[in-house]
Design a protein around this nucleic acid. Sequence first.
DNA 1: AGCGTTATTGGTACAGCGTACGAAATATGA
DNA 2: TCATATTTCGTACGCTGTACCAATAACGCT
Lengths: 249, 249
Amino acid sequence: MASGEDSALIWTRREPGSRRPKFTRDQIASTALAIADAEGFAAVSMRRIAGEVGAGTMTLYHYVRTKDELVALMDDAIMGEVLIPADEFPAHWYDALTAVAVRTWDVLMRHPWALNSLQNAPAGPNAMRHFEQSLAALAGTGLDAPAKFALLSMVDDYVSGNVLRSAEVRTANAASDGDEVFEEAMRFAESQYASGDFPYTEALFGGEDPRKVFPRLLGGRSERDRFRHGLAVLLDGAAARMGLALPAR
Amino acid sequence: MASGEDSALIWTRREPGSRRPKFTRDQIASTALAIADAEGFAAVSMRRIAGEVGAGTMTLYHYVRTKDELVALMDDAIMGEVLIPADEFPAHWYDALTAVAVRTWDVLMRHPWALNSLQNAPAGPNAMRHFEQSLAALAGTGLDAPAKFALLSMVDDYVSGNVLRSAEVRTANAASDGDEVFEEAMRFAESQYASGDFPYTEALFGGEDPRKVFPRLLGGRSERDRFRHGLAVLLDGAAARMGLALPAR
DNA sequence: AGCGTTATTGGTACAGCGTACGAAATATGA
DNA sequence: TCATATTTCGTACGCTGTACCAATAACGCT
């Protein structure tokens, strides 16, 4: 019994409330989210959040046991953005899985810092709803549980990995002209080519500004389109292996 | 000219050496690596490293400008482990790409903390060698540069994403019997099932210890085999799309 | 051999972090 | 109105990265 009032898990521990408090977990978490989105996860500190909501620093600890719990709240808020409204849920497994994956990608690209913490705590309510939606997408396939799980894992892995690396590409492209580190890196690469150990890389990038080469390598497609393409390749491969039908087109 | 002696990049800045110093970048970086592997990345602090190598804390700053530079050294050391000896390099693109990916996976699974920093700095020498090997794998395919780049990116994304999530699964499975958080999480999940909003999840996990369910879901295969399987699915899909031949088997 | 130069070492200090502790303020039921 | 329990938050501790500067010691030169 004991309905878990001082549970080890934030999801089962009630918010303060018997004497009407000044703040809410929601308010605190969304403030933290705003800071992370605007200035990066490193800018999220307890003092900073408290300042922003107009509370004393230690007041936050009445709503949350540790900073990790607050991060869990942030993560689950993000998982909430990922959920697809029931009436938009596609009928065919391929379309449904694609919709879930693309939506997840869209959200994670808005909060790429979340990747570091997302997998490190037990699933919150929205993470559970997301998982339920993923299972729902495959409900009509007739696959057995291990096959479903394998397929979902593959898609999940690809989504996370793509977000992880897309953040990198974005950084590289954001290098401004006067950026000393960037120009030093270019000179370093050129000097490495001179050793003759990098024939393929040199053929690709040699002597040219990478910021010119990249758009050509990316085939003029947007990040999002490249992600969708990769996802389609993956799903095609999986469908072929698992004997699943692709949607009529 | 000026050969970049006080370059902005650690790769082009010479180590101290004109008056024979007591330490080396290598020694410092590999000490840091050992700490990270043994106790997690969070345990790597400048004071801790300095203590371990027998130096004063600030001495490290003569070998490295910032902690980020030290992390870059750690990352490139890891990329060094990923390199495949020339005489082991498979001839067929499919085997070569698989070999590179699997080796990368093996190494990253030994240093999963590295994922957070790997993409955030300009490529070091070993990262360049790794990229060169990836390009070499595709040299015989006749694909154009954008196609090669797309294929490599997909594989890379999948590798990173899989490592990221495998670390999670491992944590879940490591939950010991008395673990209060774990048991609380189980109770929470059960209570959610009761709402009736999670029919698929409940069918999968309901009423059973997840640590019993997981092995069944994973089909008895090892993490590594599951990764290899997913990679094969991805490569098959890509080969089909790009008109590449699979190796004779 | 001794000395001046300067590379190298590392002590001290500062601002920031998460958070333990305990005191002050305040809303509520009686 | 008062006692009580809830909520707020100031202070303090040990940790972090690293700026600054003084002490140490290795080398080139005379």
